[in-house]
């Protein structure tokens, strides 16, 4: 298919067909989520569920791909659906305008092959990661702060990673657009690797990078 011609041979045509059948839930349609949704749609993941309870506001404009002067005030998942109809109408995108809670997390993620963390706070990450672990769904976590990003994959047999997200917020450094797009790109790649059973997952290690210093580092993380 001409649309996916440039995906090959990095992914095979057989893998392209596999992607078309896969279901991914992206939790968050903001700084990370906007780019993740775009990338997964463009590469051809067939079914996306995108979840966010927010609407776009001015402070989103510095980094959120789906935000523009035209989308201010509109529900983020609806904008994601509209964008995907234009970018890749072969993708079935289900927009869900709600916040993830302990009550709805498992129902939301059930039936998906991968859950992608594009959230913006610790407590919801904890809820979502626990739900993914309970339903035995791999979880691709990503987060940004200032010039920095962090990505890692949680597999269903892993112990909790709550220690990374619990407690007080700490120092706030803002969220820069290139930290968001870089982190999201790594998350999208990890998601596709999971869907295609490709090696080299960021599992058992954190990838942390600082775009200011130019340092990218793998930090061993044992959650076994």
């Amino acid at each position: 298919m001409a649309r996916y011609e440039r995906n090959h041979p990095a992914i095979s045509e057989a893998e392209q067909e596999i992607l078309a059948k896969k279901r991914v839930l992206v939790a968050g349609c903001g700084g990370l989520g906007g780019y993740i949704i775009e990338l997964l749609g463009r590469i051809g993941v067939g079914h996306l569920t995108v979840v966010d309870g927010d609407v776009f506001i001015q402070s989103n404009l510095n980094r959120q791909l789906l935000s523009s002067n035209d989308t201010l005030g509109r529900k983020k998942p609806d904008c994601a659906a509209e964008r995907m109809r234009s970018v890749n109408p072969l993708v079935s995108l289900r927009p869900v305008s709600t916040f993830i809670t302990e009550e709805n997390a498992e129902d939301l993620i059930a039936g998906h092959d991968v859950v992608v963390d594009a959230l913006d706070n610790g407590p919801t990450r904890i809820i979502l990661a626990r739900a993914a672990r309970k339903l035995k769904i791999p979880f691709v976590s990503g987060a940004i702060s200032g010039w920095r990003g962090r990505v890692f994959v949680l597999m269903p047999d892993d112990l909790s990673a709550d220690f990374l997200w619990c407690g007080e917020k700490g120092v706030i450094q803002g969220n820069l657009c290139f930290a968001a797009s870089s982190t999201a790109s790594v998350q999208a790649a990890e998601t596709v690797k999971l869907l295609l059973d490709r090696p080299g997952l960021l599992h058992g290690r954190l990838l942390e990078f600082d775009l200011l210093s130019g340092q990218w580092e793998e930090i061993p993380l044992d959650l076994s």
Partner: peptide, 10 residues
């Protein structure tokens, strides 16, 4: 001991 930084944004 590795002292990491809490990264929570999205």
């Amino acid at each position: 001991v590795r002292v990491l930084y809490k990264i929570l944004g999205g």
